[in-house]
Design a protein around this nucleic acid. Sequence first.
RNA 1: GCGGGUGUAGCUUAGCGGUCUAAAGCACUGCCCUGUCACGGCAGGGAUCGCCGGUUCAAAUCCGGUCACCCGCGCCA
Length: 444
Amino acid sequence: MRVLIKDIKNKEGESVELKGWVDVRRDHGKLIFIDLRDRSGVCQVIFLPSSAAYEAAKELRSEWVVRLNGKVNRRPKGMENPKIESGEFEVAVDELTVLSRAEEIPFDPASDISLETFLDWQPFALRTEKNRNIFKIQAEIVRAFRDFLISKDFTEVQVPKIVAQATEGGANVFKIDYFENKAYLAQSPQFYKQIMVGVFERVFTIGNAYRAEEHSTTRHLNEYTSMDLEFGFINDHTDVMALENELLVYVFNHLSKNCAKEFEFFGVELPKIPEAIPSLKLKDAQKILKEKYGLDLLNEPDLDPQGERLICQYAKENFDSDFIFITHYPTEKRPFYTFPDPTNPDFTRSFDLLFKGIEITTGGQRIHDYQMLVDNIKKWKINPAHFDFYLQAFKYGMPPEGGLAIGLERITQKLLNLDNIREVTLFPRDMNRIDILLSTLKNG
RNA sequence: GCGGGUGUAGCUUAGCGGUCUAAAGCACUGCCCUGUCACGGCAGGGAUCGCCGGUUCAAAUCCGGUCACCCGCGCCA
């Protein structure tokens, strides 16, 4: 029976079978050490000249996959390795089977590589400790998001990614051939999650969203993971903000419990998240930027990247918060379904959440009144006939509702203080690359 | 799309007009090593310095073009 590496500490003196990858080899001639890696951790195994496996062990190289049998021994005094969980023990191997050989590895997994090399070699590069940690943390973010919402009586739904209409305007969409017709890749699950509020009252969905924007930045992807939620019977957008606040507190608590080792690896602390994340109206944020930092965006409908960075700095200095809500974006800047502020309809009951200088969430209250939606669609000069399907949900009774979306890769990136969003994306799609460089297809 | 930057062994980098017949660490090959843990020691293989052209007695090094990638901006999660 196979034993996992993390469990060998309970098997002292016993003969165990281990399976895994050769992490590194240290050949001392008469004495060969291998660091063996499996899904649970790393341990040292030792081959002595007296072992039947000794000759075969001379052949071993990095990333070979092996099965071995040996006895778990406590390491000699002074030979413990405090850096690894199994460091007080080692396995003296007497039987070795090579399950798979590996070619010479293309780079040193313990050293830094360039982003380009990482992307070129992702199927192998993801095996490094750094990358296992990144994607373990990301998986736990998703899990915490899901667990929290389920505990709040939300229902998870799956929604299509092929859509008939270029829904939201603004961002560009990918056109695809759909039999005899054109179709598009969804920019967001927006319409479907709203429709599902009429069914379940509270829903969430985690899935890919597509943006055909020709940009090359450290925070954009053409395919990203959107964590969306939407729920009914709200009073206004502040209910959505309050839920997100509670959600994030839950997520970070979960991470501190389940990913302490991984965060330690990156040398980062989890951000402090206030019980009430500070909030500014866009206009007020713009005034602060002008007065405090001399950045004049007063006539802009939004903050620019520098404005986002500065207002986050302001939040850190004045509220000791890595997070800040910006609310009340101009009506003209937001999609047609955004709920206007009754006290000043030029602005909306909408918000962005900024975290360490970038936007990680957009959300708000939506228009739930059928006639108001239809009027708005006309005002936005879109053909309401294209939205008949969506509008059914509102025609037949929709409670006041709202929701939000969190960019999974962005929150992961900022949490770990990593430079480029592609470092936290499995197989990122950007202008130049779909796994392989598109330029190599052009030329080859 | 616009602006800036970078391209030197498999990887990470040094060299930035002559001393370069291109250097180092890791990886790879061979030999040595019974306590290493990114083991160590000795030896070796591996690069027409992204590509094309120009300036010069002389170009990895300067200039122009080109290709590729990276960063910033618009836009956005």
